[in-house]
Amino acid sequence: MAKPSIGGTETRLISVAGIAALCLVAGFLVLAIIPKDDPRVSAVRQLVFDLTSPMLELAGRPAQAVEDIGNYFTTLGDVRNRNRELERQNIELRERINELTRAEFLMQQYRGLLNLPSEPDLQMVNARVIADLNSPFVHTLVTKGGRDRGIAPGQAAMGPNGLIGRVISSGSNSSRILLLTDFNSHIPVVALSSDVQAILSGTNRPQPELQFLPRQAELKDGDLLVTSGRGGQIPVGLPVALVRRNEDGKLTVQLLDDLQGLNYVRLVLSQATKAPPSELQLAPDISQ
């Protein structure tokens, strides 16, 4: 039996390599001769991409697999860290719930001893923000929902964390909200820790300011401001802002919600408390 010729095999390999080299040289010459903006150049380039794309995809699979494995372990580590953080927050929330339950029980006992009337429960409706009319001079929002949902002027508007403004007009199916930052906004507030009362007034800037503070007012950094209910327009106890002091010791206010980019608000369906009749209204008519 005759053995295969090694020399013939080498000759065929050299011939194949030579043909491939000639094809490459011919291709480069063609690309050099033909102008770059010629449509044939784009067609040839696209044909090369079409022919080599399966090989490029196949060659990139190992690297993609390694990257996917790395992302998996990174994501797994992030999930574990997030789970630990959520467990810690859950423990803190359970402790907070226990404190609030005890405080509510004591409050009910104190109200019973003092024979105080209980505050009415707040009813709220959600409304979607359909327009943001903020400008250098006007800070308002337009929401979907008006008189058809019980929304009326004077009602409080809440964000995810606290008060953001009040309703100033309501139509059949839309309402307009005056934000706390508007120059025409003035909300009576009280510091929860020290019972210091003031007026939170808008300044047409990102943060409102406190006005009519007592001279000896003691407000600390981080004190929570809530609505005082003065005027009977907005219910008492709605969270509004935090007291802040800058490096110079100047008193500032930080709202609990970012008023930019609100998508939904909650409107408190409360009725304003009517003022009692004046002495002139109660006096008998002696003109007759």
Rank of each mutant, 00 (worst) to 15 (best):
K3Q: 09
L13K: 02
A17L: 12
L24H: 00
A32G: 05
A32C: 11
P35G: 04
S42L: 10
T52K: 01
M55V: 05
L58M: 01
E67Y: 10
N71M: 14
Y72P: 06
F73D: 10
F73A: 08
V79T: 09
E85Q: 09
E87P: 01
R88L: 15
E92W: 08
R94P: 03
I97W: 12
L100C: 10
M107C: 13
L116E: 06
S118K: 15
S118Q: 15
I130M: 13
S135H: 06
H139D: 09
T140V: 15
V142C: 11
G150T: 04
I151R: 11
A156V: 01
P160C: 12
N161I: 11
I164Y: 11
S169I: 15
S170Q: 13
N173Y: 11
N173L: 12
S175M: 07
N184Y: 13
V189M: 08
V190G: 05
V190R: 11
A198D: 07
A198S: 09
L200M: 07
L200H: 08
S201M: 14
T203M: 15
R205K: 15
P206W: 01
P206H: 02
F212S: 13
F212M: 09
V226E: 02
I234H: 00
V236N: 13
A241D: 04
D248L: 09
Q254R: 15
L255G: 05
D258K: 12
L259D: 02
S270Y: 13
A272K: 05
P277V: 01
Q288K: 01
Q288A: 13
